[in-house]
Amino acid sequence: MNCECSRQHSDLSLLEPVFAEYADVKGSLITILQHAQEIYGYLPSDVIYCIAERTGETPARVFGVATFYTQFRFQPVGKYLIMLCDGTACHVNGSARIAAAVQEYLHVENGGTTEDGLFSFSIVACLGCCSLSPVMMINDSTYGSLTPELVLEILKDIQAKEAAE
């Protein structure tokens, strides 16, 4: 069996400040995982093993908690994470058309990342901006009242900005 974790060499020292603050506070596992994801962009398996060891939990339990919540990712994500809302209001107002436009333009599946590593695409539950539906977030910015044309414009702007850098 090919085990991925032996090939991963995350810089575990980055976790030290997190452990210093939370390792001894009971019930902090989710908070620690959230910080770890902020540091690495996702949860590499060696990081999960490290968290298990330092919190005194079994790796199985840490994986169990991490996989329960949609926020946690186990694969690296692109520089820009597109979260397209598929809440009720967005659904009624045509989020499926927006999803099709993004997928066609970037050649990316739901949950996938583009080959250049620039974009990850994820269809998510309600983002709570229903009055601007359909809505998406790219990293921390929210874009509303989307049309297939507008969404392509936004993606092209990002690509142009990246090409210029």
Binding site: D86, G87, T88, A89, H91, A125, C126, G128, C129, C130, S131
Partner: peptide, 11 residues
Amino acid sequence: DEGDPGAFMDR
């Protein structure tokens, strides 16, 4: 933890 799709009062 306002999770109902279509609700944003708490936010």
